[in-house]
Design a protein around this nucleic acid. Sequence first.
RNA 1: GCAGAAGUGGUGGAAUUGGUAGACACGUUGGACUUAAAAUCCAAUGGCCAUUAUGGCCGUGCGGGUUCAAGUCCCGCCUUCUGUACCA
Length: 1040
Amino acid sequence: MKYNFNEIEKKWQDHWAKNQTFKAENNSDKPKYYVLDMFPYPSGAGLHVGHPLGYIASDIYARYKRHKGFNVLHPQGYDSFGLPAEQYAIQTGQHPAITTEENIKTYRRQLDQIGFSFDWSREVRTSDPKYYKWTQWVFIQLFNSWYNNDSNKAENISELIKMFEAEGNANINATCDDDTETFTAEAWNAFSDVEQQEILLKYRLTYLAETEVNWCPALGTVLANDEIVNGVSERGGHPVIRKKMTQWSMRISAYAERLLNGIDYNTEDLDWTDALKEMQKNWIGKSVGASVTFNVISNSDVEALETSEEMDTSRTSVSNTIDVFTTRPDTIFGVSFMTLAPEHDLVSKITTAEQKDAVDAYVEATAKRSERDRMADVKTISGVFTGAYAEHPFSKEPIPIWIGDYVLASYGTGAVMAVPCGDQRDYDFAKHFDIPIPNIFEGVDISEEAFADKDNTIIANSDFINGMNYKKATKRVIYELEQIGQGEGKTNYRLRDAVFSRQRYWGEPFPVYYVDGMPQMIADEHLPITLPEVEKYLPTETGEPPLGNATVWAWDTETNTVVDNDKIDHKTVFPLELNTMPGWAGSSQYFNRYMDPHNANEIFSQEAIDYWQQVDLYIGGSEHATGHLLYARFWQKFMYDLGLVPHNEFAKKLINQGMILGTSAFVNRIDKVIINKATRIDGKKVASKEKIKTVKLKNPIFLSYYYVNEIDYSKSVGINLDDSFGNKIIKERTQRITDIIKSQVSDDDIKYFEDDDFAYTRFISTIHADVSFVNASNELDTIAFTEWRKEYRNAQFLYEEDKTFIVERDVEKMSKSKFNVVNPDDIVRDYGADSLRLYEMFLGPLEQYKPWNTAGITGVSGFLKKLWKLYIPFMDGSLSGVEVEPTKDNLKTLHKTIKKVEEDIENFSFNTSVSTFMIAVNELTAQKCTSKDILEPLLVLISPYAPHIAEELWEALGHNESISTAAFPIFDQSHLVESTKEYPISFNGKTRFTIEFPLDMSKEDIEKAVLADERTQTQMQGREPKRVIVVPGRIVNVVG
RNA sequence: GCAGAAGUGGUGGAAUUGGUAGACACGUUGGACUUAAAAUCCAAUGGCCAUUAUGGCCGUGCGGGUUCAAGUCCCGCCUUCUGUACCA
């Protein structure tokens, strides 16, 4: 009757697989519920205990919903395109498909042994041509669409063409490239085919354009903004530079407002955490203000201006204009200069001859600095005057035009109107270069800093807006700008269009070929266009992406097949696109594909989407906040515009699970000694600043935690211990270390340790030890350690006598390089999957970051053993034929457990329900409960958490069917009704003792009884109570 | 700088939304069983003081406030984590 978890878990996992227990049907009388996990990238390292956390939570919820009578869709798959498999291919020549396949096998084995209730019949892999056919298909739909701002949705490009043919583009309210020029219907019809295609690209929702991109030379590819962290690549941490390239982009900016609305105003639609919504909101970065056009004063006028003090107001020759965006149009009369980004197109055009050298030098110097440098160095103020002036739109005063790297080319228009009195950066710039700082705020002191508080402002010295507040002045300025045609109200977004091409092999190929340099879509019926074979996964010698190495990579428009490159004749055979799609392409619609994953004719059938609608619960990491989760929302809205999906948002509720952190183990190592000239301070020998040499030890010395702490080393700095200070133990230890060091140095060097002219410092560094060599008491298995790090096989380990070598512990992110990874395989082997599942939940709230500590698992493991014991009478036959009536206590325990567990699951408070189970089992054990009426429903409660043991015991109780769809027990309040309450009696708010009273006892009677109690007399010590507060059913408080 | 979240025993964390702070576990200590170990079981465990049983004082990052009553509400700070940043 032993609880043999390994055997039981295998048995039920096989049972579920064989009977397809968790296969979901696309129609059912039951209500539907869709629980989704973010699908994993199958990395070569496999899973660590942190990975399944979210899967366990979603699995508990999915199983719970099945008990509650829902038809549950709980699929899983793989985001299997990506960099690591390709990097591995570059190094080894092994095809990424093979690496990926192997990794998936490992993942599947690891997932299976945890006992998830996934419907594996619906598995998708983004790298499977049958899947990416539909990624390519969505891409084509995007290409064939434009964004109509009047109807506020995506529409077919053919409608746009019709409008161009009929009326040109002047009155079309579409989201398009900024540089789109206006044309008439006649002009459109006169354009050549290629010209028309060029114009249409400026409107399409995915388009090819020369854009400034983040280029990562080390990875040989471009990166999206969300793939860059702190100025370096997210993967590998390589530097990133700005570069102009022709790239596919996604016009996500067209959806900026709708993406924002979904999280901002329409909150009931999107039950996501505030933190996540906030992140997306910041990323979209909406700012409302105005665009203002400043005319640049021509150079000849500037000369006139410089020779005479008088201003020439009759200028007519306006050649250049500068557009700026401002959130403070009300401060327009405070403008005293303008600043352009050094990269701004106009810089070379407007710079005067005298300033040319200085400007060129500055532009060059800025270009050399990496984005990261510029970001790190915020404090330094730099800039150069261009020599040019712009004209104030209202006052017509000349305004000097500067360039400065505090203005970013990639935000807004790359130019600002500088208002030093109202913006600190402009203020600092003006102070630094001695530019005037006119004050336009009434009664505000700006002698020390700018005044940026727009809500407490009255505008002054500002012509027609004097005396107005921010709101009124803004409105008026925008009106006046519109009157003179030099500006308008404008909303600006930080969100940029997303670059969609990658110069990589292991990604979705584009269904695109090129005729006369213009991209053409391959018709839907010929999809998928599968990845070609290449000999090398590196870029070609001419710098083309890896697909440039393919020999069979041309499109034959007659046969509609991929053919040999040799056949390219630009008549019927054309070159195919060499870029591939980015990682987020495949993850942007996978949740909908799960609804109908094997459909070869459609991305999903109408019936499937009508039935499943959208994801009800999505669980995954918050690191995808501004990547996947934003892109997927964008694609969903596009699919909604096409009428393909019934919801604007793909996931109703989203939870970000926290991370499980590792507990790293550190050992202190002395591996070198630094020799200095000695000097004496207060008669004590210490090292002088004069360094002689560093002596590296052949065999390092490792110091146990307490050993090193008692010696009181200052870590990593090193400390001179030559002098005889400290107590006896310390001296002995110091001597021991010195002896070991001396035994290792050459005869030439020994003088440094014996001669009084020298002092030496032992340099202590801390290195990670693999946590598998460390036990719960932080003792290091030194033999296993030296076995693992062979270079230390002759190292000395120093620790206290009669003790063992102790490591230091610290909590860090779990990672291979920190040797703190705990493999779920080991946990499942030693404690079972049910213990792993329970323990991961028991660690703490789902959303929280928390450290893993394998030792703690004995708590939940012991709980399962106790649970098992409760059911032994049903297995050993001792209860055969006997029906035991539940006692009142039994029922009370059961029903309070039902209530709490149900509430906890609904609130995703899984940690507290594990506690509740423990309490229930402890109580039922104490009650010696053998009633089936209690123990049967208890199993259903526990089954979502520990499904294997639940199935096994369910079977032991005589069931032939799986527990997975057994009805969730119904809570009955009547079992919890109490007739008395143990009232806490407090005095001035401090509880002193308790008295039991009937619950129906009146306030007055309780008060009397409390005052009559002799313990009350003791507490009051003769004082009269001023007041007695009685809260029936809760508490009594005596004030005195 | 801005935004969001969080500070509770040696540790992970509970606390019915203002009503007995520290549930449930880990760890530690003591005990039982055992030749021994493991496993299992029992007891104690926030700190300080007192002890013959009883008891007393302090305690949820810090300082104030509201209240019969504050971990929970209000005001002002401090610290940590996460995101983001010359965003005009």
